[in-house]
Design a protein around this nucleic acid. Structure first.
Lengths: 172, 172
DNA sequence: AGTTATTGTTTAAAACTTGAACCAAGCCCG
DNA sequence: CGGGCTTGGTTCAAGTTTTAAACAATAACT
C-alpha cells in the first residue's frame, strides 16, 4: 500500500509537537539538574514511587509506570540508592523480586524539589493553556499513550498483556 | 509566594503527557534504529535540512530549528557526514560559518526512511485523533514551545532575541 | 585599533543506553 | 519429584551521547 503522508495540518501539529517536547524535556532537565544535579527521569521515578501505596513498588511495576526498561530502571535506582533517596528491599512473597522503597530522605528531597519543578511545568505548560485545552491535552496524550502501548502488546501477542499483576507492595 | 500546585486535571494531563512523550520517543527511536541504525534525532535533523531552501543551512540555524545546542549538532552532523548524508561547506559571506548541506545520498536516505517513519507516527498519533484534536494538539504544542522559547529569551535579556538572522544559505 | 560577541569545533570526562548473558526463583506438568 | 520453561532483576561490556569549558577564527562595535 502506498504511503499515507501527513496532511498539512498533521505536519504542522507534528512539527509543533517535536519542538515542544524537545524544548520541554530540555527545560525540565536543566531546571532539575541545576537544582538537584538530577535529570528529569530521576525525579519522575521518585515521583511515581511517592504515589505508590506505602511508597514502595516492585521494580518491574515501577519500570512499567515510568515507561522505561527494567535495565534502565536498575541503573537509575542504583544511583538513587547511592543518594539515599531509595532503598531496596526483598520481596517476601517472591524471592526473586526486589522492591524499591522511597526513603524518608527521598521523600524530603522530593518535597524540596517539587515546588521548583511544578513551577517550571506551570510556566512552560499550564499557565498558557485554557481549562478546555488542559482537558484536550489529556485526551490527546492518553490516546497516544494507549495507541503505543496497545501496539506493543499486539506485537508480543494478545496473551502477553499485563492484565493482572500481583503487587506485593503494600504489606509493610 | 506559596507553590501553586497542579490541579487534579492538570496532574492527569501531565501524567498523560509524560507517558505519551516517553513512549513516543522510544517508539520512534526503536523504529528508526531498526530501519536505519539511526536514532530519531538524526532523522529529525535530516528532515529539517531537507525543508530548507536548497537543502542547506547554517549550523546555528539548523541547531535552532532542531531545538538542540550547537555542540550537540556538531556531533550529529559529524556522524551524518561520515554516513555521506550531509556535506559541510564554507560560508562565503561569513568565514566563520559552515553550512550543512543535505547530499543527494542523504535525500535518498531520507526518502527511503520516510514511509516507515510516517507510518510509525500515524500509527502512534494521528490515526487516533479526530481532525479537531489535531488542530487542538497543534495549538497546545505551539503554545508550549512559544512559552519555553519566550522564557529563555527573557533570561538572556530582551535584547538578545535572534531578531534578524542572515542566512547565507540560498546562494548555490 | 581594541574590545567584545559569534561561530563552530574540539576536548575530556561523565553519564547514559543497550542488549545479551546470567542467576535465582517460580511455575507447570507428566 | 525433576526436568524444562518463564519471569524478575542484575550485571556486563560496548558503544553512544551529553555536557561544559576552552579554543581559534572571524565579525562587529565604539
Amino acid at each position: 500500500m502506498t504511503t499515507r503522508w501527513l496532511t498539512p495540518e498533521e505536519q504542522r501539529a507534528w512539527r509543533a509537537y517535536l519542538a515542544a517536547s524537545t524544548l520541554l524535556e530540555d527545560a525540565l532537565d536543566r531546571q532539575l539538574q541545576q537544582e538537584a544535579g538530577m535529570p528529569h527521569l530521576y525525579y519522575a521515578v521518585l515521583a511515581v514511587l511517592s504515589d505508590a501505596p506505602d511508597r514502595r513498588m516492585r521494580m518491574t511495576d515501577l519500570a512499567e509506570h515510568a515507561k522505561i526498561t527494567r535495565s534502565r530502571l536498575t541503573y537509575v535506582v542504583t544511583r538513587l540508592e547511592k543518594d539515599g533517596a531509595i532503598r531496596r528491599e526483598n520481596c517476601q512473597w517472591d524471592k526473586r523480586g526486589s522492591i524499591a522503597v522511597l526513603t524518608d530522605e527521598g521523600l524530603a528531597l522530593l518535597e524540596r524539589l517539587a515546588p521548583g519543578h511544578v513551577e517550571s511545568v506551570r510556566k512552560a505548560v499550564f499557565d498558557h493553556l485554557t481549562p478546555e485545552q488542559i482537558g484536550q491535552f489529556e485526551e490527546i496524550c492518553s490516546a497516544i499513550a494507549a495507541a503505543i502501548e496497545g501496539e506493543e502488546a499486539q506485537q508480543n501477542g494478545p496473551d502477553d498483556l499485563p492484565w493482572r499483576r500481583r503487587s506485593c507492595s503494600s504489606g509493610q
